[in-house]
């Protein structure tokens, strides 16, 4: 039998399939996180202070406990309640809730940055609460917080590396699998790092440029 060997095309494709898993977890988690985050953020910004603060305190827990611990706890919930969800689902939901805790604060700061006078003016002109929200507050707030939201998305993408602990083969885990065959950790890790970099850096640059461009207007 033949063990070992050099880094081949197949290995590279295997790494790329890991990257696809990383991206799909990121996508699902960011969608969950954004939907929940907008909902919670609007509650944080608009509801009576005791509801907003309670929600804020609960979400703060998700930002103060390591994601790794959250994943393990969520995974053990999964088996305790006999839900039998696949680990992919567990990872996505856990990361989604984690992202929503950050997204909530982003949305809240965006809504808070819309001048109160603008909102009152819209209401005085006869817009309903819903109309004011969808055509005045949210468009302005989106422009303000979009760069932070890009930052959050990239943060989630990097945090997906942790799901390898509950047994999902994403990019970093697949690099380990390849390493155990090829026995060249530095090379494989270098390629893996490059893939992460290529996925993250252009979007980070775009975010910075948007921030500069929109900040000066």
């Amino acid at each position: 039998m033949y063990f070992g060997g050099s880094f081949s095309r197949g290995d590279f494709l295997f790494l790329l399939s890991g990257a696809v898993t990383t991206l799909s977890i990121t996508l699902v988690a960011v969608v969950i996180g954004t939907v929940l985050g907008v909902l919670f953020g609007l509650i944080r910004a608009g509801a009576p202070w005791w509801i907003g603060n309670t929600l804020g305190a609960v979400l703060d827990v998700f930002r103060s406990v390591p994601l790794l611990i959250q994943l393990v706890l969520f995974n053990s919930f999964n088996s305790m309640l006999k839900l039998n969800w696949p680990t992919f689902t567990v990872g996505c939901i856990c990361l989604g809730i984690y992202a929503s805790a950050f997204c909530t604060e982003i949305v809240r700061s965006g809504v808070g940055a819309v001048p109160q006078t603008t909102r009152r003016a819209a209401r005085s002109l006869g817009l309903t609460w819903r109309q004011e929200l969808t055509s005045i507050t949210l468009p302005i707030a989106t422009r303000i917080v979009f760069p932070s939201w890009i930052g959050l998305t990239l943060g989630v993408m990097k945090d997906t590396a942790l799901v390898l602990w509950i047994g999902i083969v994403e990019l970093l885990r697949s690099s380990q699998i390849v390493t155990s065959r090829v026995q060249e950790p530095l090379l494989i890790l270098g390629i893996t790092g490059l893939i992460y970099f290529v996925m993250s850096f252009p979007i980070a640059r775009l975010g910075n440029q948007l921030e500069k461009k929109w900040g000066t207007q």
């Binding site: 990097k158 590396a161 942790l162 970093l172 950790p185 530095l186 893996t192 790092g193 993250s200 980070a204």
Partner: peptide
Amino acid sequence: RNTPALFQIYMLYFG
């Protein structure tokens, strides 16, 4: 800033 922290630790540990 553009790679996971876990990757950076791996790089030091295995690399």
